[in-house]
Design a protein around this nucleic acid. Structure first.
Lengths: 192, 192
DNA sequence: TCAAGATCTGTACATTAGTACATAAATGGA
DNA sequence: TCCATTTATGTACTAATGTACAGATCTTGA
């Protein structure tokens, strides 16, 4: 890219600010509102700036989803790396499910947009796969592959209820479910 | 609606065919491709027909999502009503998760589009809530409220992996997870 | 059979969108 | 300082979209 050029961009993190603005709009108003013009306005940059940094709108949306996936993956990874024991890790998983600490409602919305876009956009589909893989890999720091699968399903699915039914989840129930899965599957795993 | 008119529509199920066409396009190509014109072409009806039956595009999309939600709800309900025992119901739940029998990949795509639209469209949001409630109600034919919550999270979350990682799920693992949750939560429930 | 009124359709229009690209600004070496 | 080159911007253009609505078509009662 810049291997045969002598100069860097005049405003180096402009691309990043555009990407961040795109994600904000996608999360708040949906991808159908995230046009060149709305994104440019939000980022406070001229229209031409977007076509300069991104070949087309798809690429820009994809960059926004990549930013989202990287943020969430990093957060999951950190949270689970920090847990010293399997029991602590179980508590982290419960937290991932019930609370806004890790993924707030806005980010959850953006995540739905990402899954929806993954249906027809190959690039976004790759991102979805990566995101799922990495979140399972983080769980893998503490649990067996099978347990990871099951816990991750819970982690993906339960927040859907949280978002649409508005209310807070019953932490006790979530806790029981998480521990039931860990108990049920880790034991089975060890028997093999 | 037709209370003060003397005649019915000339083509009574045209509205339904339009709705079905809309859902097909949403599922196959995404909601951003589901314009008046593409839907009309798919349904084999003139453009004006859509604006005649539906006040605006939102209403049409909403009708499509309603159709989807009703179909899936009915399928879940039937499957779980048919199960004679709790054990059979557990098998049904496993089937809901692993297989295409209840919700195929295409419908799953449409479901993502629905969740994504629910973020910003109040009408669709209501549909999402209803869909989640009804699917839990169907589980409620066999399980306690807490168990329903947990199982439904699994039912919503696990297919996400199925769709994006393409492969078939390991039925054994799903079976273990489902039964672990039932065992863990139903027992707890009864102790109260 | 025939009008009256409901049901339906094709076209036209304003708006918005993505994107190309000519032009401007900034940069750094000579 | 000044020019060559990269970086950045504003505008203009084509395509597509939602929607209104005038007119056409069909149905029914008399």
């Amino acid at each position: 890219m810049s291997s045969n050029t002598k100069r860097g961009p005049n405003d180096p993190d402009r691309a990043d600010r555009i990407t961040a603005a795109a994600l904000e709009i996608i999360a708040a108003e949906g991808i159908h509102r995230a046009s060149h013009r709305t994104i440019a306005a939000r980022a406070g940059v001229p229209l031409g700036s977007l076509t300069y940094y991104f070949a087309d709108l798809r690429e820009l949306h994809e960059a926004a989803f990549r930013l989202l996936a990287e943020r969430l993956s990093a957060r999951y990874r950190t949270a689970l790396e920090t847990a010293p024991t399997r029991d602590a890790a179980a508590n982290v998983v419960v937290g991932l499910i019930v609370g806004d600490e890790y993924v707030d409602a806005t980010e959850m919305h953006a995540l739905f947009q990402m899954y929806a876009s993954g249906n027809h956009d190959e690039g976004v589909r790759r991102l979805c796969r990566q995101w799922l893989e990495e979140s399972r890999a983080s769980l893998g720091l503490h649990f067996s592959p099978s347990t990871c699968r099951a816990l991750d399903a819970l982690v993906e699915g339960w927040p859907i209820h949280r978002v649409f039914e508005g209310g807070h989840l019953d932490r006790t129930v979530v806790d029981q479910a998480v521990r039931a899965i860990i108990a049920g599957l880790e034991d089975k795993e060890e028997q093999r």
